[in-house]
Simulated scan of single mutants.
Amino acid sequence: MGRRRRWGQAEVAAAAMVTAAGGSWALQPLLLLLSLCGLCLAAEIGPPSDVQVEAIDGLIRINILAPGSTDKTPMWEASDFSYLVELRKNGSNEQKQIKLASNNERIDKLSPNTTYCLRVKAQLNAGEKEGSFSPEYCVHTESADANVLPRPENVRIHALNTHFVLKWDWDEAYGENVTFLVECCRAYDKKYMASNCWHAVPSCKEVTTSECDLSSEIWFEGTYEFRVRAISGTEERAWSKEITCNPSKDTEIGPPSKVEINLINDSIEIKISHPGEDTNKSMKDIQGFYDLSYRIFVWKNTSDKWEKCFEDEHTLYTLPVSELNPETYCLKVQAFSQMSNKSGHFSAIKCITTEAGNNPVVLVVAVFFLQHCCLQFYSCFLLRCL
């Protein structure tokens, strides 16, 4: 539902309705609010106030001014809307519908040297209310030029722990003198600042390879968009398609930074360091991963099936083993977070041989920074140790 920032004709009309209805003055503010809500819901959404389209480098850039933006007292905020575009080739009745999340977007994967026509209508993000279509606008895409630098394609982000790398595909046939520039925009800023949010990533200027480290640019709060373009001398080509990065959702949990196993007095001691600790950026300290815990899989080296699997949050955990003869045990460790619903990469497999003795061998697991444990094999199975 739209939000109003100041009094206008709708509010005046609602106030008049409340006054005419009479009743207690104590109830009039509530009646006024209900009347305003009814007016907002009943209000018709017109076409966008303005639509600007531009064809450049084989794509269409579109900038939309929200319905009612030019009114003296707008009924809705610009951020209340998303948009639906109906696109067709000139001379054809076959239409393609494209949903736009914001008012400043691009439409790519178009044919060169072709005239496209489009019209736009707004949709309220809250509810299913839609506006009417704008007039139709037509633009002509450029002819393909084999001598012109293309846009980088297949832009993607590889995220592991707190390490983020932007990668893209590039044809090396365009020469060795091509460099790349990466720009960033916070999604929040793009929504409220339109095109003014973009800024160059300091570590990604004049890049000579088809990847760039974004780690210094990204925090785990918020959502980001990135784009990249090729540069050759004074020639700067169009930007690639923007890619969105939500760090908390997109990152993968890496393996534990270190897993140490030692044989101490008929017991095996295992020490685990959190993922990222080797770079001084422990995942345990990242918002959304404070509950980081571990699954530990243990099996005999002579078997291809693990014997024990347990989840533990204690700093010390013991698991009796029945064999008295020397035996080699192997294990691997996986971090997981129920808060983020993620399971991490496994550690490398490590093995150790126990010694013969008169007492049962005890497997001791010292898992740092943990608090709870799963004592039964069946419980571990339910907790998805398989």
Rank of each mutant, 00 (worst) to 15 (best):
R4H: 09
G8M: 03
Q9M: 10
Q9N: 10
Q9S: 11
A10E: 12
M17P: 08
M17Q: 15
A21G: 14
G22T: 09
G23M: 12
S24D: 15
A26S: 14
L32T: 01
C40T: 01
C40P: 02
L41I: 05
E44Y: 02
G46W: 06
D50P: 00
V51S: 04
I56E: 13
D57V: 13
G58F: 03
R61C: 05
R61L: 09
I62R: 00
N63W: 10
I64A: 01
L65M: 08
A66Q: 00
T73I: 05
M75I: 03
M75P: 02
W76I: 04
W76K: 04
A78S: 09
F81E: 09
E86H: 08
L87E: 11
S92A: 14
K96D: 07
L100F: 06
N104Q: 15
E105Y: 03
R106G: 04
K109G: 13
K109Y: 15
P112Q: 06
T115F: 05
C117H: 07
C117S: 11
L118S: 04
R119N: 07
R119Y: 04
Q123V: 05
F133M: 01
E142V: 07
E142F: 02
A144D: 15
V148K: 11
L149I: 01
L149V: 02
E153W: 10
V155P: 01
I157V: 13
I157A: 06
I157F: 06
N161K: 09
L166D: 01
E172Q: 12
A173S: 14
Y174S: 03
N177P: 02
V178G: 03
T179V: 06
L181G: 03
E183N: 09
C184F: 02
A187K: 02
D189L: 14
D189W: 07
D189C: 11
W198A: 08
H199A: 15
S203M: 10
S210N: 08
D213G: 06
E217K: 07
G222L: 06
F226C: 01
R227V: 05
R227H: 08
V228K: 09
V228E: 12
R229P: 04
A230L: 01
I231W: 03
S232H: 14
S232P: 08
G233Q: 09
T234R: 13
E235Y: 10
E235P: 05
R237A: 14
K241F: 07
K241I: 11
I243F: 08
D250Q: 14
P255K: 12
N262I: 01
I264V: 12
S267T: 09
S267Y: 08
I268K: 04
E269D: 08
I270Y: 01
K271C: 13
S273I: 00
G276V: 02
D278H: 14
D278E: 15
T279G: 08
N280C: 09
F289G: 07
Y290D: 13
I296A: 03
N301F: 02
C309P: 00
T318Y: 10
L319H: 00
S322P: 12
E323Y: 13
L324Y: 11
T328M: 00
K332G: 03
K332F: 00
A335M: 02
Q338K: 13
N341R: 12
N341E: 13
N341Q: 13
S343G: 15
F346T: 02
S347C: 09
C351G: 00
I352L: 05
N359W: 06
V362F: 04
V365W: 05
V365F: 07
V365N: 01
A366E: 12
V367F: 03
Q376C: 08
